[in-house]
């Protein structure tokens, strides 16, 4: 399974997550967002980039509770709440934003 953008092929698993995190680039992120029906704005990218940074530091995608807390610490309390994040990613910030960020499905994402 997979998709293609600008002649580059990206392999995905049966749930649509990138198989190789190193394949990710903005074009892949854009295509994954399209598949999720998310119109990417600067605020969306801010969360996606935050997740990528978190993953590179700790090698995991954070649980929603941890994500909201950590975002609040880094980007300000007005963004560190689940309402803000669910507005951006209605089907779950951890699940949708992680997919767009090219990360594996978060541990503990039920």
């Amino acid at each position: 399974m997979g998709f293609e953008v600008n002649g580059k092929t990206y392999e995905t698993d049966e749930e649509g997550y990138l198989v190789n995190i190193t394949d990710w680039d903005e074009a892949a992120g854009g295509e994954l967002a399209k598949q999720e029906g998310i119109p990417m704005s600067e605020s969306h990218w801010e969360v996606v980039n935050f997740l990528r940074d978190y993953y590179s530091e700790f090698q995991i995608a954070p649980a929603v509770r941890v994500l909201t807390k950590a975002i609040g610490k880094k980007l300000g309390p007005e963004k560190g709440n689940s309402q803000y994040l669910y507005e951006l990613f209605p089907y779950g910030p951890a699940k949708q934003a992680c997919k767009i960020a090219g990360l594996p499905k978060p541990t503990g994402c039920i």
């Binding site: 530091e57 700790f58 090698q59 995991i60 954070p62 649980a63 941890v66 807390k69 950590a70």
Partner: peptide, 14 residues
């Protein structure tokens, strides 16, 4: 094999 030393650093966030 995927390493997980760095992940212990996230425990505090949890």
């Amino acid at each position: 094999i995927k390493g997980f030393e760095k992940t212990y650093g996230a425990l505090e966030d949890y």
